[in-house]
Amino acid sequence: MPRRTWSKVLPPEAAEREAAGLRWLAAAQGSGGAAVVTVVALEGPRLVLERLTRAHPQPLHAREFGRALARTHAAGALTWGMAPPGTRGDGVIGAARLATPTHPEAPDAPRHWGEFYATYRLLPHLRNAVGRDSVSPQGARAVEEVCALLVDGAMNHPQPQLLEPDTPARVHGDLWSGNVMWTETGCVLIDPAAHGGHAETDLAMLALFGLPYLQDVLAGYQEVSPLAPGWQDRVHLHQLHPLLVHAELFGGWYGDQAVAAARACT
């Protein structure tokens, strides 16, 4: 039977980036990592993917997904912010210009997670959110205070047990509930912004928009790779990036939530 596929057309660099991210995440399946939608072909701007059939969420699938996601994270990355191999330039995700030998003025690789998170994930979206009046100047100062602590390394914290404390995890990077596809055989990852980051970021984003059976996912994750003490208190910190992205794109309520999350961090 021919494989069932579907296609989407993106800007060529975006199609390349998504295909590379899916393949990089899928490489962890050999060590028990999470299932990932198969890239069938990449034809310039056209990305051809395996067609998946949706099914109702199941708690057993949620628990197994948690176990598998822990193993995906444990596959690791070479540097903080590392873009997946095969991405043009193989630079730091979110950088205005990729750090390559031909671009010596490009930003250096971040020294630690806090520097990466503040510089490449928070501050660019904060500037844009302020520019569209989604975040007030006073609210921006609350976020900037968090960013200063992050850059100084004061908010760094260990990874889950399967990773060394200061080793980047292999994260999906945009793991809201809509990017977890429930099928008859289990959960499948789609639409990543994959990079080397902190494992708690993926889990915090699952919580932000309400994944079904999230407690089962977390229980399965902790069975395989227990989270560092105090992880519940850091959920606001890890949700700050998606909240700022939404404040930039949609304004209003998301800006207020981003500022509230920043204030909860300090």
Results as ranks from 00 to 15, higher is better:
Met1Asn: 07
Pro2Met: 13
Arg3Ala: 13
Val9Lys: 10
Leu10Cys: 06
Glu13Ser: 13
Ala14Val: 09
Ala15Trp: 01
Arg17Met: 10
Glu18Tyr: 02
Ala19Gly: 08
Ala20Leu: 03
Leu22Ile: 07
Arg23Cys: 08
Arg23Gln: 13
Ala26Gln: 11
Ala26Trp: 03
Ala28Lys: 07
Ala28Thr: 10
Gln29Asp: 08
Gly30Tyr: 01
Ala34Tyr: 06
Ala34Pro: 00
Ala34Ile: 06
Ala35Glu: 15
Val37Glu: 02
Val48Trp: 07
Ala55Pro: 02
Ala55Arg: 09
His56Arg: 15
Pro59Cys: 08
Pro59Val: 02
Pro59Met: 08
Leu60Thr: 13
Ala62Trp: 10
Arg67Ser: 08
Leu69Cys: 07
Arg71Asn: 05
His73Gln: 12
Leu78Thr: 14
Gly81Glu: 01
Met82Cys: 14
Pro84Met: 00
Gly86Ile: 07
Gly86Trp: 06
Thr87Glu: 13
Gly89Ile: 12
Asp90Ile: 05
Gly94Ile: 12
Gly94Ser: 12
Ala96His: 12
Leu98Phe: 13
Ala99Glu: 13
Pro101Ala: 10
Thr102Gly: 13
Pro104Gln: 12
Glu105Trp: 12
Ala109His: 11
Trp113Phe: 15
Ala118Cys: 02
Thr119Leu: 09
Thr119Asn: 05
Thr119Lys: 08
Tyr120Ile: 02
Arg121His: 02
Pro124Val: 01
Pro124Leu: 00
Pro124Glu: 00
Leu126Gly: 07
Asn128Gln: 15
Asn128Pro: 00
Asp133Val: 01
Val135Lys: 04
Val135Pro: 12
Pro137Lys: 05
Gln138Tyr: 06
Ala142Thr: 05
Cys147Gln: 03
Ala148Glu: 15
Leu149His: 14
Leu150Val: 09
Val151Ser: 01
Asp152Ile: 00
Asp152Lys: 13
Ala154Lys: 13
Asn156Thr: 04
His157Asp: 11
Pro165Val: 00
Pro168Val: 07
Ala169Pro: 02
Gly173Gln: 11
Gly173Arg: 09
Trp176Val: 10
Ser177His: 12
Val180Thr: 13
Val180Asp: 03
Thr183Lys: 10
Glu184Leu: 11
Thr185Lys: 11
Gly186Asn: 10
Cys187Met: 14
Cys187Arg: 08
Ile190Ser: 08
Pro192Gln: 05
Ala193His: 04
His195Lys: 03
Ala199Val: 04
Thr201Glu: 11
Asp202Tyr: 04
Leu206Arg: 08
Phe209Tyr: 05
Pro212Phe: 05
Tyr213Ala: 00
Val217Leu: 12
Ala219Thr: 13
Gln222His: 14
Glu223Cys: 05
Glu223His: 05
Pro226His: 01
Ala228Val: 06
Gly230Asp: 12
Gln232Lys: 14
Asp233Ile: 01
Arg234Gly: 11
His236Asn: 12
Leu237Asp: 05
His238Tyr: 15
Gln239Pro: 01
Leu240Tyr: 01
Leu243Cys: 05
His246Met: 04
Gly251Ile: 09
Gly251Gln: 09
Gly255Phe: 12
Gly255Lys: 12
Val259Gly: 09
Ala260Phe: 01
Ala264Val: 02
Ala264Ile: 03
Thr266Ser: 15
